[in-house]
Amino acid sequence: MILDLVSMLLIAAGLLFFVGAAVGLVRFPDFYTRMHAAGKGDTLSSLLVISGFALHEFKDFEGMDFILALKLLAICVFIMMTSPTSTHALIDAGYEDGIEPVIAPDAENVLGDPTSRQP
């Protein structure tokens, strides 16, 4: 009962973060901020939703349901490792490619001249 309630809460929170990620992907001004929204929001919301599923499947901690829950938790671990890495790789590639970030008009571009950095 409590397990069900917690899993429902986790899934609802995950969906909320999914909405945030989607809105950020559409509304943010440039490549880096969009990747920030997609990468962070997507990772956290996937983790929350899948761990919610896993909690829902735990039930009495035995049988096929338990194995299914363990598989779901394994997916959580892999998402936690691969999703931030792919976001990092994409942003790194964009930076090497010389994509200009959008900054405040009076601020200094602390990233420097992106084209000066060669792989």
């Binding site: 892999f78 490792m81 691969t82 890495t85 990092h88 790789a89 790194d92 792989p119």
Partner: peptide, 16 residues
């Protein structure tokens, strides 16, 4: 050193 994050993650993931 720029690729260390990608390199280490792939080194862990590829055998799996």
């Amino acid at each position: 050193h720029q690729r260390i994050i990608i390199g280490i993650t792939c080194r862990i993931m590829i055998p799996i």
